[in-house]
């Protein structure tokens, strides 16, 4: 069985890559087997919680993501048993499913973003644009920083996507802090879970790319552990039914923003100019 086999948030792609680059993949350790089983059990528990607490209504994309991961684990297990870990069929399936898993995660993150901000249409429209720009920048950065090799292209793209997911979540939290937006604790925990996993995955992937032979087993075990941490966080957060703060806020008339904001900005500008003058000492010192 490959070292990273199992329910681990789409980590299966790394398996395929490992098997391509290094066919003498390390023998799986007991610890990883335990983690695989643990992740499967926790994932199932989370899915049950989502259904029992009726949270699947609010988190439909997230529920699909968890369900897909569980299904993926089972499929990989079956294919591995039938074709073996080094087969081309296994490799193709692994990467194909990896793309779907990352896509499902991105949609689930978009759903969390909507929960955070959609009550405020003006800010939500602005945030959407900002988050898209952020994704574009991170993807561009990852593309420039990555090693330009065809062997590593897929894993590089995968890492770039994970990095952009992590960046989007951070920007989202910064946005809510800047505007003092009250957050629902479940949404917050789901977002932090995604961030931790995406961040760790990107790190893990980079280490694997650099030090494949020496750290492959350790990295995959840590990756599974990170996913277990995220699953536990999500299960804890979703143990109760989600109570939305309020469906819609009472909005101000259109003209308020257009009238007041330029005026405020103008005054802030003059205030800054005054501060500049204060910095220039002209009178006796204290």
């Amino acid at each position: 069985m490959p070292s990273t086999f199992g329910l681990s948030g789409g980590r299966i792609g790394t398996i395929g890559w490992q098997l391509r680059v290094c066919y003498d993949a390390p023998v799986i350790e007991e610890f990883q087997q335990v983690l695989w089983a643990l992740n499967t059990v926790t994932g199932t528990l989370l899915l049950v919680l989502l259904v029992v607490r009726k949270n699947y209504r609010a988190y439909s994309a997230f529920t699909f993501y968890i369900f897909f991961n569980l299904l993926l684990g089972i499929f990989v297990f079956v294919i591995y048993r039938l074709r073996g870990g080094a087969s081309m069929a296994y490799w193709r399936f692994a990467w194909g499913m990896q793309a779907v898993a990352v896509g499902a995660r991105a949609v689930a993150v978009a759903e969390v973003c909507r929960h955070f901000l959609s009550r405020f249409p003006g800010i939500w429209a602005l945030a959407k644009r900002l988050l898209l720009v952020c994704v574009g920048l991170v993807l561009a950065y990852s593309g420039l920083a990555a090693r330009h090799s065809w062997n590593l292209a897929v894993s590089g793209a995968d890492r770039a996507l994970e990095l952009s997911i992590a960046a989007v979540i951070v920007v989202l939290f910064l946005f809510t802090r800047y505007y003092d937006i009250p957050l629902e604790s479940t949404d917050q925990s789901v977002a932090v879970g995604f961030f931790l996993y995406s961040c760790f995955y990107a790190l893990d992937n980079t280490l694997l790319e650099r030090y494949l032979n020496s750290f492959a087993a350790l990295c995959s075990a840590l990756g599974m552990l990170a996913f277990f941490a995220s699953l536990s966080l999500w299960s804890w957060a979703l143990r109760k039914s989600r109570v939305p703060i309020s469906s819609e806020e009472v909005l101000l008339p259109m003209g308020v923003y257009q009238t007041l904001t330029p005026q405020i900005n103008l005054r802030l500008h003059s205030l800054n100019d005054q501060l500049c003058k204060i910095l220039k000492p002209e009178v006796p010192r204290l």
Binding site: F120, G122, L126, M254, L260, T261, I264, L268
Partner: peptide, 26 residues
């Protein structure tokens, strides 16, 4: 100012960016 932006049906990115910049400067 942020509350006004938050409760407005539409906000202008230019004004928001300007305020952020001025706040950082202040």
């Amino acid at each position: 100012a942020r509350l006004i932006a938050l409760l407005s049906p539409e906000v202008a990115a230019v004004h928001e960016y300007e305020r952020l910049r001025l706040t950082a400067k202040f």
